[in-house]
Design a binder for these strands. Sequence first.
RNA 1: GGCGGCGUACCCAAGUGGCUAAGGGAGAGGUCUGCAAAACCUUUAUGCGCCGGUUCGAAUCCGGCCGCCGCCUCCA
Length: 483
Amino acid sequence: MKVYNSMSGEKEDFVPLTMGHVSIYVCGVTVYDLCHVGHARSSVVFDVIRSYLTYKGYGVKFVKNFTDVDDKIINRSKEEGVAWDLVAKKYIDEYYVDMDRLGVARADVEPLATEHVEDMIELISGLMSGGYAYVMDGDVYFSVDSFDGYGKLSGRSLISQEAGSRVTVDERKNNPLDFALWKRSKEGEPFWESPWGPGRPGWHIECSAMSRKYLGDTFDIHGGGADLIFPHHENELAQSEAFTKKPFVKYWVHNGFITLDKEKMSKSLGNFFTIRDILGNFDPEVLRLFLISTHYRNPIDFSYQQLADTEVSIDRHYSTVLRVDTFLKSHGSKPKKDSEYEAFSVSVSSFREKFIESMDDDFNTAQAVGHIFDLVRSVNRYLDAKPSGDVAHALLTEAMKLLDEVCQVLNVFRKNPKDWYRSLMKTRKLPITEREIDSSIERRNAARKAKDWIKADEIRNSLLSCGIILEDRPGCTGWRVKV
RNA sequence: GGCGGCGUACCCAAGUGGCUAAGGGAGAGGUCUGCAAAACCUUUAUGCGCCGGUUCGAAUCCGGCCGCCGCCUCCA
C-alpha cells in the first residue's frame, strides 16, 4: 500500500509504527459557523481513509478535534450577543447534523481544545524550560530559531520567509515567524489560569497536546486540508518535536481544495457554499460521491452542473440495483446456457482485487468508483442476455455482495432504490405522491391492455410532467424520478 | 520574491515508461419496445498545454516556454 507523504513529496510504502494498528489525527473545524463544502471534502476524505484502513484489517484509532476557542468564535459571540461557549456548542451540533447526513462516521476521540488546557500548559512549560519559548507581556511565543528542523514540512527556509513575508512584523518577537503558544486574554475574553497569567492557548498548541495525549509522541497519519501545511502543521511539528525529541508524525496527508471558478472556496473570500445549501437541492449521497470521484489531493472545481451529472450517475447505479432485485425475486429456475456468463464471471471475480489495487494506491477513490461502474455495466450486459436458473442467481448474488462490500467502505450506493427515488421526490419537491403514481400506473396498464395507446400515453405524459418516468418491463411497470 | 501544484475528448475525471488512453455526464447512430424509458452496442482525443531532449518505446522521465491555481495572514 502506498501513501503520499507531504513531508517527502512522494508516495511511500505504508508501514505503520505498530504492526496491525494505525493512529490518525485529523485537524477538525473551528466551530464558529456552518461548515462549507471544503469542510465536507476533508471530512469525507478522511472518513474514507479511515474506513479503508479498517477494511484492510488494521485496528484504527482515529482522533479529530474541535477548535472551540479562538478569535473567530469570540468575534461571533460578540456579534450575536451569545456566550462564546454557546456559539461553539451550537456549531458543534450543526457540524454533526451535516456530517451525519453525509455519512461521515464519528471519530474514536473528538477532543475539545477547551478541555485540554492543562495538557497544553504542560507542553508550553516544557518548551519554556527547554529554551524553545519565551514570555513577552503575558504572551508566550515559540522561537522558531531554536528548533533546527523548522520549515521541513512546508519546504521553506527561515531566510526566504523573511524577505517576502506579508506578515506584519511584531517588533517584540525575536523572529517574525515566532508564533503564540499562549495568549494573554483581554478584558471580557475567556481565560484560563497559567504560570504566565490568565490567558488562552494559541491555535497550534492544541493539536500537539491532544494528539500526544490520545495517540502518543509519535503517530502514523496526520491529516487536514492542504492550507494547514503552513503554518499550522509546521508549527505543530516544531512544538511537538522540540518537546518530545521524537519524530512527531510518520505520514502527513493533505487533501486538496474545493474551488469555485478555479478560486479556492473560503470564508474570507465569501465564495462558498455551505453543506446545508447543497443538501437543500441534492441528496447527501450526491455530494459524497461527487467529492470522492476526484483523487483527494487534486483540486475540485465545484459546480451545480457537476453535481447534477453525479446525480444521474447515482441514478444509473440504483436503476441497475433495482433490475437485479427484480431478477433475483423472479423464479426462473430453468437453467439457460448464456453466452455472457463467462465474461460476467470474470468481471465479478476480479472486482475486489481491482478495488483494493486502486485504494492501495494512495486511496484512489476516483479509480475505485470507475471500477464500480465497470461492474454495473457488466451486470446490465449480463441481464440483457436474459439469464435464468440457479447458476445465474448465484453469480448475480455474488456480484451484489461484492458491490455491497466496497460500497460499505466508500459509504455510497447503500440505499435501496425506492429510498433513492423517494429522496429525489423530496429534494425536487415533486407535486405527486407514490400512491398517485401507483394508481396512474394501474389506470394506464388497463388502457394498455385494451390497446388504448392514446389514453396510455396521456397518462404517461401527465406523470412525466410531474417528473416521473415510467418503464414498462415484462410483467410490471416501474417508475423513476426524472434526473 | 520564496515554496508547491495543475493543464488528458463538448463537460467532469482516472491513468505517471510499453497491450485498443479507465469511468461518469452530454451528443449522434443502432438493438430492444405498441410507442417510449431503461439497458446494451457503435461512435465523439492517431492524441494527453506548446517546443525540444532521453529511450527500442513517453500523456507518463528531463529541459525550456505558455496558461491557471494554492501556500507564504485566519482558513478543510
